[in-house]
Amino acid sequence: MNLDLPGYHKVYINWVPALPSENITQYAERIKSQITVENPYIIGLSFGGIIAVEVSKLINVKKMVLLSSVKTKSELNKRQFFFMRLGLYRLIPSGLIKHTNFLTFRYFGARSPNDKKALTHLLLDTDVAFFRWALKSIAHWDNKEAPERTIQIHGTADRVITSKLVHPDYRIKGGGHLMVLNEADTISKIILRYFGENSNK
């Protein structure tokens, strides 16, 4: 909501409940029904970026931007994969998932009062069943090919998706996982410049 993209009509894709047995590809197949225009520009944030990568395999996308996200499985932390593959995410109490403290603020890079307030509301609204399904799905995500016509914008201080593992087109110095909140002006300018370019990247 903080991105300022004049000249473009923003349409927010709504998360839908995941079916317990479906994978990311099957979920993306259901999500794409919300995209009603041809050759859309897509912006995917965090886990939404992973879904966007899968959606881009199913429809023609003009250009795509991944924020605080990954293009392929290799950009994800192997220790996190191990944790998720073992199913240890099931042991995280619901109360811990839905509440914030100084550790979650630090982990997500929420520094200002507004950032902390936004993260608090975000976690309070989290569907715990969906959160656990997402972790399980990421653990079994096997995409090895970077999508075409896509740029990746990542913060150097991202602790959720470790900055040193990704190879973004743009690095936001000091940006955390929630940099879309506090670096929105810089990110908006990058996106607008990319959308306006006549390139195949």
Rank of each mutant, 00 (worst) to 15 (best):
Y89V: 10
Q34H: 11
F105K: 15
H167Q: 10
K136E: 13
R111D: 03
I42M: 12
L181Y: 03
I42D: 03
I13S: 04
F130D: 08
S199C: 13
I42L: 15
E22R: 13
E38F: 09
S163R: 03
K144D: 11
E29N: 03
R79Q: 09
F81L: 12
P6Q: 10
T126Y: 05
S68H: 08
I187G: 00
Y8C: 06
R171Q: 06
G176V: 02
V180G: 01
K144A: 14
K62P: 00
D125S: 15
F195V: 02
R193G: 04
N198K: 14
H140L: 13
K57R: 15
I138F: 04
P6T: 04
Y170D: 02
H154C: 05
F102N: 14
L91C: 08
L86A: 12
P40Y: 07
F195N: 01
N200M: 09
L91I: 08
K32N: 10
N39D: 13
L19S: 12
N101R: 10
I153L: 10
T104M: 11
A157Y: 08
G174T: 07
L58W: 02
T156E: 00
F130M: 15
I35S: 05
P147Y: 04
P40I: 08
V128W: 10
L3P: 05
E183R: 14
R106V: 01
F102R: 15
S46W: 03
L122I: 09
R90N: 14
R149I: 01
